[in-house]
Write a protein that binds this DNA or RNA. Sequence first.
DNA 1: TTCGTCATGTAATGGGTTACATGATTAC
DNA 2: GTAATCATGTAACCCATTACATGACGAA
Lengths: 185, 185
Amino acid sequence: MLDLAILGLLHESPMHGYELRKQLAVKLGAIKAAISYGSLYPTLRRLQTAGWITEAGETPADDAAVPPLTSRRGRVVYKITAEGKERFQDLLDRVGPEAYEDSAFGVHFAFFARTAVDVRLRILEGRRRKIEERREGFREVLARAAERLDAYTLELQKHGLEAADREVRWLEELIANERKNNKEG
Amino acid sequence: MLDLAILGLLHESPMHGYELRKQLAVKLGAIKAAISYGSLYPTLRRLQTAGWITEAGETPADDAAVPPLTSRRGRVVYKITAEGKERFQDLLDRVGPEAYEDSAFGVHFAFFARTAVDVRLRILEGRRRKIEERREGFREVLARAAERLDAYTLELQKHGLEAADREVRWLEELIANERKNNKEG
DNA sequence: TTCGTCATGTAATGGGTTACATGATTAC
DNA sequence: GTAATCATGTAACCCATTACATGACGAA
């Protein structure tokens, strides 16, 4: 997941680690909290070793005449390599059932702009199925055992059901949209 | 978190590990997926060593005359001890800021029926504050950078904003309810 | 008798966090 | 000059998962 996210962001533009973390927090804000440096930097190292990213000299900036604002200490700017781009596409396209999971779905979704239509549809439909099942679970609990649950547990179940229901509807919309654009475009 | 959840469930009634996992999945279904055995059994061992739970002989059942349905293999039924109950209350009452986090909030909420009113209110209000901040984050991104985001990233931000907004409203309701019941009751 | 599910458990591994250490740069 | 924030990195740890191993019980 981190690999995918980092490659995806560096695909948009070169960046150093600190900045990457901030961008990651924005891009994936709806999905997970910001990752820690203890996770980020070793991952960058690993991606570099794998040849998917490289250190780019401090950004050439718009104007070469301006000595780029005093070069800071380490400040390593990374950019994605050709192999990195391939790897990224691979991660985007070779989706298994993990892509429907909470943790992975959001990250995949965040890079849908670079994902093939059929893959997008497969992910959205798989996700929908998953959430429908979850919703069914809540319904069953509420139907069969509601009277045995305390008020708060009950409230939690209802809240879960509502959330699942809304997500299904959201996904329906997205799926309908994909199909429409698929035909039209 | 697992400690709290297990102690809480065993507080309701004695159970063996396998059953515990299923109950956990129901009770915390809105929060997280079912935990694995590789996590559950070692934790039970640890709780037992700490003296918070003990093995109860296979349930005496309603009728002592009936040899309880052929004792299955291991099938270890655990029950909470007096120290376990103390520990449970401790975990419920001594809430720090972690209790507002996604991971902990749901578990705490699930056992609100056994939590003091003032603690409930503190948790709900802390949680609300946290989600309000998150909501603010989405608003800022959408206000400042919407035009620079692709359609899917944008959609994710909107979805996040909506979800945060709904959760805040949900929490408001719960808080209002707590205050009302606090005065009336 | 065989399949599903009940039931317990371990070992290897993984993916992350926290805490710490260091130092440069910017704003007051 | 000093506090905040930018910036990178490591080591220790934690919590949980996966994969595996084992075996009993009930129903077909």
